[in-house]
Design a protein around this nucleic acid. Sequence first.
DNA 1: AACCAAAGCTAATACCATTAGCTTTCTGGC
DNA 2: GCCAGAAAGCTAATGGTATTAGCTTTGGTT
Lengths: 183, 183
Amino acid sequence: MSRRVGLSTAAVVGAAVEVIDESGLEALTLAAVASRTGVAAPSLYKHVSSLGELRTLVGLRLLEEMTERFTAAVMGRSGAEAIAILMREYRAYVIEHPARYAAMPADPLHDPALAAAGTKLLNVFLAVLRGHGIEGPDAIHTTRCARAIMHGFASIEASGGFGLPEDLDETYERLIQMFVASL
Amino acid sequence: MSRRVGLSTAAVVGAAVEVIDESGLEALTLAAVASRTGVAAPSLYKHVSSLGELRTLVGLRLLEEMTERFTAAVMGRSGAEAIAILMREYRAYVIEHPARYAAMPADPLHDPALAAAGTKLLNVFLAVLRGHGIEGPDAIHTTRCARAIMHGFASIEASGGFGLPEDLDETYERLIQMFVASL
DNA sequence: AACCAAAGCTAATACCATTAGCTTTCTGGC
DNA sequence: GCCAGAAAGCTAATGGTATTAGCTTTGGTT
């Protein structure tokens, strides 16, 4: 009984992302993914070596998703405009997928499985700054500043940490102007 | 056998903070707290109604701890100096207690049990800005910006998200200058 | 047609939170 | 000083979780 379902690692990761989208990161459990894919929980081990690995693979997919999206958004733009667009796109992603953002790996460069994808994402930012004439150690500091601003705002917003929901656009535009003005 | 240990809710919360300090937020489990306090796990329910409540109580204690610390740091200072000191103190706390920072409630104002403590912490920031002549809706935006910058930088640093550990002081000073200059 | 590897399954283990109900210990009133 | 009751502890049991072991089925390849 129970015909073969035709699962794959990619399908398992996809189901995991769906679980996160629907029920939040803390609901990402092998049991939930198994139920969603129509399979018994231990069967998932044929495609994924552990829950920890599944989390890593989800993080990898999300990193790639962000990179692709940011690359497309910034294409054909340059200078301060490109920087502002990148920052707005970052926030837009988090608003669209707040639960996914919580699943984002905090230190991708430290995990060998994520380092390459993390570097690619970082390079989008470095490329935009280079187009603004910022390079070398300066670019490192500047990128860190941008990350801190974007991640800080986005993570607080995604977790509902700001009291009033209105005016958040204005707050974020202030941050963008603040950052751009400092360059 | 097993003489009375003399536990209290406060002692349980204290043990929970120790577990977090030593082994990280994910290690905060009733079993770990029970073992540390020398008690069987179900006995903790005499002092705490659930793991969720324990998490909330830990968050409450940490909020109060931060408020007290920031209040002391800023006392007697005013203007841009006070703002810079507050921002440095925020980061200093996170560097001293990275695991505790991860246990910090993301949206204290939304949880009735934390709202009062969250408001007090917020008021420290508002008071400092008021001393700089910023009030009303402007103060809301400005406080949000400060929060985003501090939280963003601190949480990335606490999770090891910045590649190189050196120069982080310089990056953070840049952010402080950027923020102060925007006022 | 038959084999074999991959993909599924069930059963079992270990750890977690939580509940129920029992026992011990301290404390307050006499 | 004693004793009743509440508070603080305990063990046992339940249900959810990840994970491992070992079995069965399936489907593609020879």
